[in-house]
């Protein structure tokens, strides 16, 4: 309905679509350097610089910046890795989980930090790249721990009736090789993508109504801006949550591959 009203006002309003996210900066085609690629690279440089700077001189009694890094590190190390993977062999996976968490968190936060305002993870390529590592790691540690045959055997829970085993095995195979990586990547992508579209829709819509609409629409644009603000705060929550969920699921998959029983 709003579209019709706006169209009647004279100019056309283009609702944000998937096309909004395609922003090549240098070159074109499959290997174009796009805006999210640069933001992603920037985030890696930023994280690496901050982490190296904050851990340059570590004291037993922490200072302010060390405390911040330690809080994030402690969340990943103790809250995720140790609790989910178990205290025996969680330390090997702490670097992976820590870099995943910080990278996703910073890239998500870029979605609402003003000069950048582009959630990198709303381009499926980046969640997919991260998922690829998780995928390789959890299969690798599973096969290394149990052997190739043992790994596939451990997918099926013990004590099932014989006739149901092939069915369950097929389902588990699907879970391990398709559902898990696809949902892992799509969850992050979908949340960021949808959240960013909603934000863009509200802000562009409010702007359009304010600039091109009549008096009634100008008034309506005020609650629309407010809504955009509320949704930005909501996005902040979702961004934290998704970074946490991605890391937690990665840890859960690794723990599942390491566990002796299915």
């Amino acid at each position: 309905m709003s579209l019709r009203v706006l169209a009647a006002a004279g100019e056309t309003f283009e609702a944000p679509s998937a096309e909004t996210f395609w922003q090549p900066l240098i070159g074109s085609g499959a290997f174009a350097i796009t805006r999210p690629a640069i933001v992603y690279a920037l985030s890696v440089v930023l994280i690496a610089a901050v982490l190296l700077w904050a851990t340059k001189r570590l004291a037993v009694v922490p200072g302010k910046r060390q405390m911040t890094v330690e809080a994030v590190y402690g969340l990943v190390r103790n809250g995720l890795a140790r609790d989910i993977i178990g205290s025996h062999d969680f330390l090997k996976f702490v670097p992976l989980l820590f870099s995943l968490f910080t990278l996703i968190l910073v890239n998500n936060l870029f979605g609402i930090i003003p000069p950048i305002q582009y959630p990198t993870m709303s381009r499926i390529a980046f969640p997919l790249a991260l998922t690829l590592f998780v995928f390789v790691v959890y299969h690798f540690v599973g096969i290394k721990r149990k052997g190739l045959g043992g790994y596939f055997k451990s997918m099926v829970p013990a004590g099932l009736p014989t006739w149901i085993v092939p069915l369950v095995f097929l389902l588990e195979l699907l879970t391990f090789f398709v559902t898990r990586p696809v949902t892992l990547a799509l969850r992050l992508f979908g949340n960021m993508f949808a959240g960013h579209i909603i934000l863009v829709l509200f802000i562009l819509g409010a702007e359009y109504m304010l600039l091109h609409g009549g008096i009634a629409l100008k008034l309506v644009s005020i609650p629309t801006f407010l809504m955009a603000f509320v949704l930005t705060v909501f996005e902040l929550l979702v961004e934290f949550l998704q970074a946490y969920v991605f890391t937690m699921l990665a840890a859960t998959y690794i723990a599942g591959s390491l566990a002796d029983e299915h």
């Binding site: 799509l186 969850r187 992508f189 993508f193 949808a194 949550l241 937690m248």
Partner: peptide
């Protein structure tokens, strides 16, 4: 809390499939 968030993530996956397939 961690169990709830895990369950939330798994349930949410279905909605994410929905939005992906919608596109």
């Amino acid at each position: 809390q961690s169990i709830a968030i895990l369950g939330f993530a798994l349930a949410e996956a279905l909605a994410i499939f929905g939005i992906a397939l919608a596109f």
